[in-house]
Design a binder for these strands. Sequence first.
DNA 1: CGTACGATGTTACTAGCGGTAACCCGCAGT
DNA 2: ACTGCGGGTTACCGCTAGTAACATCGTACG
Lengths: 215, 215
Amino acid sequence: MERTERSGRQHSTTERRRRELLEAAERIVLRDGPDASMNAIAAEAGITKPILYRHFGDKGGLYRALALRHTDALLANLATALDAPVLRRDRVEATLDAYLLAIESQPQVYRFLMHPSDGDTASETGFDVGRHSAPLLRRLGEELAKVITDRLDLGPGGELTARVWGHGIVGMMHGAGDWWLRERPCTREQLVTQLADLLWGQLAAVADREGGPGF
Amino acid sequence: MERTERSGRQHSTTERRRRELLEAAERIVLRDGPDASMNAIAAEAGITKPILYRHFGDKGGLYRALALRHTDALLANLATALDAPVLRRDRVEATLDAYLLAIESQPQVYRFLMHPSDGDTASETGFDVGRHSAPLLRRLGEELAKVITDRLDLGPGGELTARVWGHGIVGMMHGAGDWWLRERPCTREQLVTQLADLLWGQLAAVADREGGPGF
DNA sequence: CGTACGATGTTACTAGCGGTAACCCGCAGT
DNA sequence: ACTGCGGGTTACCGCTAGTAACATCGTACG
């Protein structure tokens, strides 16, 4: 049937158009941060708004499509760091470093990914309590949990432990990384070392200050 | 001088009005989440928009004033947890629990505090890279860093270590808490224990899974 | 060949937002 | 009586996300 063939070709061209639009959107997001307007994106792509809406539905759709790429890229980087056949400590440090390198080298993208500007469809479905964190962080946490479950022998209930740790560690990376990116109080290597130390239990190991009552 | 007395009384009445407006705003934020509009808040207070702007300057000002209360309250709670004269592990658990209890019992407030909806004044002052995280998290991180510096003997460069750990731990609480609040995979006590285990170096201590090559 | 369809594109609009200018009113102090 | 000022209002601006209606070109099908 020629019809299917034609529709196939059409499909490929629309896919290509979609990619072009995404690239234009990316340029604008890179320039304007997370509050790039649809008008600006359309202008950058040389067209007008309704086309964007035909392709992506709404702003959330465009942002989701755009976020997916970077999220995938970052996850791939982290996966290789997590799979390196070295000591566990080195793997953890490599993972931390990969994340921090990503947010350091493309901070605008990072801000965009973390700050979805409420691109949600809820708000009618009862109260949608607590739906705040970025999808990227959730995915990262789940991926890390999988790796932990695969690699470590956590005994009974270990799956829950792995998920708690996964999301906790990702949150730690995010929080510390965000602060570090803003204040730049030290080099990336230093930060990685300090965070790995924290995960290695140094908080519990170091001594109390002299003079304070012993806890 | 009657003038000063009068202006003093005027001051107190405007302060009172301000408090009333803040309470109305709080009611609306509690109801509508972080994207409560100025119109809605003004309507709830029985007045119209310009008065809000006279009192708070702009939306960011209102939100900052509103956030300050809750932030202070939460910080006070955490401070008492951090100051309890018990074992370090118990103090850490009490702090984690205090934070999680807060976000659990008032999730709308929590969302509001974490999601500032870009109430910033930057955007002209060059690129303001990385200014994303909520002020609450920054304050928490710094407070925790202070406590760590005060209590622990971290040797040279310890101040930097304390700040990294402070923001890292706060990020961990935030990330894990956000995920937990959304999925409710376990009780609060369980979550607290798991996170404390993580901070106590269990990630480094547990054995590799059998079958995998020893790292 | 004509035609109907589908994708691309436009202009012009709605509804609502944050924010502001101009004006009104009542009440204290001189 | 007049002036100043804080509380309050209406009416507006410029912006945003999102949409409806219309025009256009290419291509498969009778």
